[in-house]
Computed example of a mutant assay.
Amino acid sequence: MTNRIGIAGISGRMGRLLAEEAAAAAQLTGGTSRSGAAPGDALLYPDIAALAATCDVVIDFTHASTVSAHAAALATSKTPWVLGSTGYSANDQTAIEAAAQTIPIIAAPNFCTGVNLLLILAEKLGATLPPARYDAEILEMHHRQKVDAPSGTALALGRAVAAGRGVNLDEVIASGRHGHTGPRRDGEIGFATLRGGQIIGSHTLSFTAADEQISLTHHALDRRVFATGAVRAALWLQNQKPGLYTMRDFLNL
């Protein structure tokens, strides 16, 4: 069976890497592009619906603003969807869940195997280390062009810690502290965001007590690691039933 992969946003920095990885692992059918350009001799399609009609799965790292429209179009065409966009709204999440009733979707803030292993460790540490003694803080840094903060991966780490502690992240998050904030609350999960240069992605989760500190760090050294993971996930997704999947499902973790 030929695996036909389409790339939404094929002319972007991630789109070009995804196209290269897709062409190496399967058949690249082409993609969509706001700029009207495509890498090499890749075919361009006018919209996501036209692209979906030519392929077995679509990989989409475009932008949060496209999520709801893409969810509707791909559900209509019954085309599996690998979604790597971050920063989308609660309404977008509802659209994703509705589409997952019809098609298999794998949505992840990060398609790197190492980060997904880090998420599992974050949940285990959150469950093991008492929040009244161990302060959880997440520091992330990305390139200066990134538009959402904290990053999707940082928020995923926070949700993993919160899940381990049996709480909702929205109830304990402390992001972007500024001014006279008062003392730190027990159980708070703090976020600090740095932006600069062309840093691909760096995340550190720390648990700090009065007498020790535990830190876990992941540095992405090449954007290709995300493209490779997304293409592997796309090949797996084609054989799944409709539903909303995560990288933990794909990696069988």
Rank of each mutant, 00 (worst) to 15 (best):
T79L: 12
G126R: 03
A162W: 00
N168M: 13
T113H: 14
P104F: 10
V115S: 04
A122D: 04
L155R: 06
V115F: 13
T153I: 01
R165S: 11
I106V: 14
R165K: 09
D92F: 02
V167E: 02
L157I: 10
V147H: 12
L125V: 02
I138Y: 01
D170W: 00
R159P: 00
A160M: 06
A156W: 00
E140T: 15
A107D: 05
A95M: 11
A127I: 10
I96P: 04
K124T: 11
I96E: 07
R144W: 13
Y134N: 13
T128L: 08
T102G: 06
A160G: 09
I106P: 02
P130L: 10
C112Y: 00
A127G: 13
A127P: 09
D92H: 02
G166H: 02
E171Q: 14
G87A: 11
P109S: 06
E123W: 06
L139H: 12
R133W: 07
L125W: 15
Y88C: 08
T79R: 10
M141G: 15
A160S: 14
C112S: 12
G84S: 11
I120T: 07
M141P: 04
L129S: 01
V161K: 02
L139P: 01
A98T: 14
L119D: 00
V82S: 12
M141N: 12
A174L: 15
A136M: 04
N110R: 01
L125Q: 08
G114K: 07
A99L: 04
V115A: 11
S77C: 15
A149R: 07
T153V: 10
I96K: 06
L121D: 10
S89K: 05
G166M: 02
P130R: 05
S77Q: 15
S77K: 14
A149F: 14
D135V: 10
V82C: 12
R159M: 05
E123C: 04
G158F: 00
A107N: 05
L117Y: 01
L129A: 02
K78T: 15
A127L: 08
Q101K: 15
R133D: 15
R144N: 14
L119A: 01
A108V: 00
L155E: 05
R144L: 14
S89C: 06
G166R: 03
I106W: 07
P104S: 11
I173Q: 06
T153S: 13
G158Y: 02
T128Q: 13
A160C: 12
V82H: 15
A156N: 06
A99E: 02
A149M: 10
I138N: 02
V172I: 05
G87N: 11
S151L: 07
A162G: 02
L139S: 10
G164Q: 03
P150V: 10
I103L: 10
L117H: 07
L157P: 02
A160R: 14
E97N: 09
I173F: 05
E97P: 01
N110P: 02
L121T: 11
G164K: 00
L119E: 01
V115D: 03
A99C: 05
F111Q: 00
G152Q: 03
P80H: 12
A149L: 11
A162T: 00
Y134A: 13
L155A: 05
V82L: 14
L121P: 00
G158H: 03
